[in-house]
C-alpha cells in the first residue's frame, strides 16, 4: 500500500511511479513507431487512434452513464459530412474538426431527449432508428452526400519532410492523446461522478441533486462530439466520403468495441478500438466472417470476462503485482 499524504496526491492522474514509467515507455514506443514499422502498420495504428476517440465517447455514454445507444453510425456520418462540406469551403482542418464534433453534439442532444423518458432496450430502439434515418437521408439527398461520386476531401499535406502517412500518424496521435486526457479528467470530476451515479441508481442520483435532464443530455452531447470528431478524422484519412461508409455495421463495430474493451474504462476503449480495427485487417481475405467473429467474441467476453479486455488487463496487473503469491 502506498502512503498518501495529501488530497492533492490522491487526485493525481498517475499515482504510482511504476504506472508512470510504463506509460512513458508506451508513449515513446508510439512516437518511434513510424521510424521502424512498415507503412501498412502505421496506417493500421492511425486507424486505431481515430476509432479510439469515438469509442471513448461512446464508452462515456454507454459505459459510464448507462444509456444504451445504437445511433453511432448516424453521428459518425454527421461528423464526417460536416467535415467534408466545410473542407470543400476551404476552412482549416482543426476548425472543421471542431465543427464536425459540434454538429454531431447538437444532434446528440436531440437524440438525448427521448432518454429522459426511455430506458434500456426502448432507448436502444429509438437511437437505432436515428442511425438508420441519418443513413437514409444521406443516401437520398445528393446535396448532402455529393451524389454518386461522393465527396472528395483534400488530404493532409505532408509536414516537416515526413511522408504523408507519418504526418497523419502524428496528427492523430496528438489528438487521441488530448482526447484521452480529456476523458480521464471528465470521468474523475463531478461530471463523471454524476454520470456514474445516474447509471448505478437514477432515483438516488436525482435525490442527491443531480439533474437527470442536464446530465443525460450532457452525456449524449459529449459522446456525440467525440464520435463526430472521429467521423471528421476518418473523412480526412480516407480523402473521400460516401453514405455507404456509415451503414449499421459501423454502429455494430463501435458497440462491439465498447463491450469488448470493457464498459466504463478509458483504457478499455482503446483496447476495444485496437480489436475492431485489427480483426478486419487480419481476416481481410474472409471478409464475410467479420460479423461472425464479432458475435462470437461478444459471447465469449460476456460469459467469461464481463469486464472486457480492460478487466482482464487489471487482473493480469494484480497477478504480477502479487507474484509469487496469489
Amino acid at each position: 500500500m502506498d502512503l498518501i499524504e495529501s488530497y492533492k496526491e490522491d487526485l493525481r492522474l498517475i499515482r504510482r511511479f511504476g504506472t508512470g514509467f510504463w506509460i512513458v515507455l508506451l508513449l515513446i514506443g508510439l512516437i518511434l513507431l513510424p521510424w521502424f514499422a512498415r507503412e501498412y502498420w502505421v496506417y493500421v495504428v492511425t486507424l486505431i487512434f481515430i476509432y479510439s476517440i469515438g469509442i471513448q465517447g461512446q464508452n462515456i455514454l454507454i459505459g459510464y452513464t448507462g444509456q444504451i445507444s445504437f445511433g453511432q453510425a448516424g453521428f459518425l456520418a454527421i461528423g464526417a459530412f460536416t467535415y467534408g462540406h466545410l473542407s470543400l469551403l476551404g476552412s482549416p482542418i482543426l476548425v472543421n474538426l471542431f465543427f464536425s464534433g459540434l454538429m454531431a453534439g447538437i444532434f446528440g442532444i436531440l437524440v438525448g431527449f427521448p432518454s429522459l423518458r426511455l430506458k434500456g432496450p426502448y432507448l436502444a430502439i429509438v437511437t437505432l432508428g436515428f442511425g438508420i434515418a441519418v443513413y437514409q437521408v444521406f443516401v437520398n439527398s445528393e446535396i448532402l452526400s455529393g451524389g454518386r461520386m461522393g465527396l472528395t476531401i483534400q488530404k493532409l499535406q505532408p509536414l516537416f519532410g515526413l511522408s504523408q502517412m507519418t504526418t497523419y500518424y502524428y496528427f492523430n496521435f496528438i489528438l487521441v492523446f488530448l482526447f484521452t486526457l480529456l476523458s480521464y479528467n471528465l470521468i474523475s470530476s463531478f461530471v463523471g461522478r454524476a454520470f456514474i451515479a445516474i447509471r448505478d441508481n437514477d432515483i438516488a442520483a436525482e435525490a442527491m441533486g443531480v439533474s437527470l435532464t442536464r446530465y443525460k443530455l450532457l452525456s449524449f452531447a459529449i459522446s456525440s462530439f467525440y464520435t463526430g470528431v472521429q467521423g471528421g478524422l476518418y473523412a480526412l484519412l480516407m480523402g473521400y466520403l460516401e453514405p455507404n461508409m456509415f451503414t449499421f455495421l459501423e454502429t455494430i463495430t463501435i458497440f462491439v468495441a465498447v463491450i469488448i474493451g470493457g464498459l466504463a474504462s478509458v483504457e478499455g476503449s482503446i483496447l476495444g478500438a485496437a480489436f475492431v480495427v485489427m480483426v478486419p485487417q487480419v481476416f481481410s481475405n474472409t471478409k464475410a466472417f467479420i460479423p461472425v467473429i464479432y458475435g462470437v467474441t461478444i459471447l465469449i467476453i460476456l460469459i467469461f470476462e464481463p469486464l472486457g479486455l480492460s478487466g482482464r488487463w487489471m487482473k493480469i496487473r494484480l497477478y504480477l503485482r502479487m507474484w509469487p503469491f496469489r
Binding site: 486526457l181 480529456l182 479528467n185 451515479a197 435525490a207 441533486g209 466504463a264
Partner: peptide, 30 residues
C-alpha cells in the same frame, strides 16, 4: 439506494454535487 460500483468516498462526494461551482473548464483542465 447506493451507487454500488463506486467507492465509499465517491458516493459521499456525489452528495456534495450541489455545492460544486459547475464551471465546465475546471474538470476538463483537471
Amino acid at each position: 439506494r447506493l451507487f454500488m460500483n463506486m467507492n465509499v468516498l465517491d458516493n459521499l462526494l456525489v452528495g456534495r454535487h450541489l455545492h460544486f461551482r459547475k464551471n465546465p473548464l475546471l474538470p476538463m483542465l483537471r
